[in-house]
Design a protein around this nucleic acid. Structure first.
Length: 437
DNA sequence: TTGCCTTTGAAGACC
DNA sequence: GGTCTTCAAAGGCAA
């Protein structure tokens, strides 16, 4: 068994070699003198950094954990981490299983080079194996390594028609903390860490479809249509037009991806990625609420300043209008993508409990009653009061009374009373009532 | 440098 | 159980 110090030194040596940005495999500049120099540097670096720890990598300290995979027999031997050959970054041996490590550093280097070349899909130089003596302990030279690794790789990490990205070619046995996608997002210049650790969600069927068909679509449309969002729109249309059997292919891919992901990260939850990327205070619905502000028909605008008896109770109490919130909520549902509350007829939202984002001031009978009362020239104040009091009780904390953080004020705002509003309101209520009925 | 846009589907949260 | 929200990929664009 090799001493830990020696192993550690070798790790450093390999890393340093790669760190020089000149792949010795490519440049052929590797020399024993250079190795010796690098080894000295590595020893100094290790001393500075402290025993048993991996040197800082781009400001990020690599946490090394053994994460054996049943799909691969020698998890610990392989180079892990952002410095792995698979990521295109310098090599490192954070963990070593002696039985797979040769005492000869050159052999280990060959193994790593072989693996790297295999994973990168690059043909191995015929001269390369001759540079080193073979290591009988390492059973994955060249093509064999590539084949094995690709076979054991989850789909979303494999190279293939669906992924042309070399950096996606990650073996499944690599600790996820070490995978580049988990701890960094490198720019063109090999930038620094941008994101903290997190495991990305597996791709769904449509994502796989996009991944595969986006380049094709780009070829079709040329470079005229550069906006990715526009492309995605088109892909969405095509996805709908895609035959079920074709879609099924992608659903199966997504399913396999999910299963693989679950197998690899059994403890992972999608929740872990919530708000991991960025803060998204303004989503589409928020934006549309703002943009629809002018269209929100509050009681004051709907019924006129003088007809306060027709106002809903919150308006009468100078609170947020239940009609305004109601309408905006409905439009938001419609405006997103047609899912959820489909179309304009959403009876489900009336039967379910409203939340703060989507307040529903009146239940179905109340809405109908209000509509009838209004159409018949009756005062609907009581109906609205019913709705309000029913949902709010006396606490005033109900969804219809809106978010306290909402700075909207019906009283202070200047609202233009559109003469067509009453008609629009009637049409709207009619529509709502029809849907409800 | 960072978030937005835009799509669909999966998963979690919430009521 | 239904609804809503977030995130996954992509890359140009705006702030």
């Amino acid at each position: 068994m090799m001493a830990d110090e020696e192993l550690g030194d070798e790790v450093k040596v390999f890393r340093r070699d790669e760190d020089a940005d000149d792949d010795p495999m490519i440049s052929g500049e590797t020399s024993e003198q250079q190795l010796a120099d690098d080894k000295k540097d590595a020893v100094m670096e290790a001393e500075l950094d402290g025993a048993g720890r991996v040197p800082l990598i781009g400001g990020l300290k690599a946490e090394i954990k053994a994460e054996p995979s049943p799909s691969f027999p020698m998890p610990s031997m392989l180079p892990c981490g952002p410095y792995s050959p698979f990521s295109g970054l310098p090599i490192m041996f954070p963990m070593v299983v002696p039985q797979y490590l040769s005492p000869n550093p050159n052999i280990n280097m060959m193994n790593m080079m072989t693996m790297r070349a295999a994973m990168a899909g690059a043909p191995l130089s015929p001269a390369f194996p001759a540079m080193f003596s073979p290591n009988p302990l390492f059973p994955f030279p060249g093509v064999v390594a590539k084949q094995h690794l690709e076979n054991t790789m989850p789909m979303h990490m494999r190279a293939g028609p669906l992924s042309s990205l070399n950096h996606m070619k990650m073996p499944p046995y690599m600790p996820h903390q070490m995978m580049p996608q988990h701890n960094e997002r490198r720019g063109h210049g090999g930038g620094k860490v941008k994101k903290e650790d997190h495991i990305k969600k597996p791709l769904n069927a449509f994502m796989w479809y996009m991944k595969e068909n986006r380049p094709k679509l780009l070829e079709e449309v040329g470079n005229d249509q550069k906006q990715s969002a526009e492309l995605n729109k088109e892909l969405g249309k095509r996805w709908h037009d895609l035959p079920k059997e074709e879609q099924q292919k992608y659903f199966e891919m997504a399913k396999k991806d999910r299963e693989s992901h679950k197998e690899k990260y059994p403890q992972w939850s999608a929740r872990e990625n919530y708000a991991v990327n960025k803060k998204k205070p303004k989503r589409k619905r928020d934006k549309s609420v703002g943009s629809e502000n002018n269209d929100q028909k509050k009681c004051r605008a709907r019924f006129g300043v003088t007809n306060t008896s027709m106002w809903c109770k919150p308006c009468q109490r100078k609170k947020k209008c239940i009609y305004a919130t109601d309408r905006s909520g409905s439009e938001l549902n419609d405006g997103h993508d047609g899912r959820g509350t489909s179309g304009g007829c959403s009876s489900s939202s009336e039967s379910s409990s409203p939340n703060n984002n989507q307040p529903m001031p009146m239940n179905a009978p109340q809405t109908v009653a209000a509509m009838h009362a209004m159409l018949m020239g009756m005062q609907i104040g009581q109906s609205a009061h019913l709705a309000s009091s029913h949902s709010t009780g006396s606490s005033g904390t109900s969804p219809p009374v809106a978010n306290p953080s909402d700075s909207e004020s019906d009283v202070d705002e200047d609202e233009d009373i559109d003469p067509t509003i009453t008609q629009q309101t009637q049409e709207y209520i009619m529509q709502e009532s029809v849907c409800t009925l």
